[in-house]
């Protein structure tokens, strides 16, 4: 008798668990339908992944309001270039630099060879670094400058003939107080584009003696 009771227990427990799981699922499903009817005025629409949800968010909310959702989407769906692009374009419209960085990093996962993306990310990181520096957050500023250097170096290696990328590299070096290398980058930028005003300005001041 005891043996029978012992054997029956796990089955009972799994049956109970099965019932609990199904009740939870039923609550979530019926609640989901009710939520959709209340919020959208119709049962859940047949959709394709997150793309339709994103469209719905864009249609119903302001840019700044949907940034948290897009950030979550971009961090989960890190491999989908479209999700990163959605975050990036919304972040530019909302002037949200942290989200711009997130979007650019996400896009780089998708297109690691894109020198322009590396350059743009370096520029944004440099801007954040300068803002941190102005607030006297030296460690945070240095971290952003070093991160910017990684991306500007990759950008220059991928496309050494871009005057703009050489200027970005020069600006990052200047921020890191590596003036010799900064001057070299600006000179290279001038070689590529003799009319480059940022390069002329930087070599005139503050890199006059380098």
């Amino acid at each position: 008798m005891t043996q029978v009771t012992r054997r029956a227990r796990p089955i009972d427990r799994s049956a109970q668990l099965f019932v609990v799981g199904n009740v939870l699922l039923a609550v979530l499903l019926s609640g989901g339908i009710a939520h959709s009817v209340i919020s959208d005025g119709r049962p859940p629409k047949i959709r394709v992944g997150f793309a339709d949800t994103h469209r719905h968010l864009i249609d119903t909310r302001k840019h700044a309001e949907i940034i948290p959702d897009l950030q979550t989407a971009a961090s989960i769906n890190f491999d989908d270039g479209v999700t990163q692009l959605q975050l990036l374009s919304t972040a530019y419209k909302a002037h949200d630099t942290d989200s711009i960085v997130l979007g650019l990093r996400g896009l780089l996962n998708h297109a690691p060879d894109d020198s322009e993306l590396h350059g743009e990310l370096a520029t944004v990181l440099l801007g954040i670094g300068h803002a941190e520096d102005a607030l006297r957050h030296a460690e945070d500023a240095l971290r952003h400058f070093e991160d910017a250097l990684v991306h500007s170096s990759v950008a220059v290696r991928l496309n050494p003939d871009s005057s703009r990328l050489q200027i970005t590299q020069g600006a990052v070096m200047l921020a890191l107080e590596r003036n010799q290398e900064a001057a070299a980058s600006y000179r290279k930028a001038l070689e590529l584009n003799p009319d480059s005003e940022p390069a002329q300005r930087a070599l005139k001041y503050p890199l006059k003696n380098y």
């Binding site: 609640g31 989901g32 339908i33 939520h35 859940p44 959709r47 992944g49 997150f50």
Partner: peptide
């Protein structure tokens, strides 16, 4: 239909964001 289209709304009903509800 229930799993892919209704279940994410169920999580949204509980207060989770649209992104995690759909993608997870």
């Amino acid at each position: 239909y229930a799993l892919f289209n209704c279940l994410p709304y169920g999580y949204q009903m509980l207060g989770f964001g649209a992104a995690e509800s759909v993608l997870l």
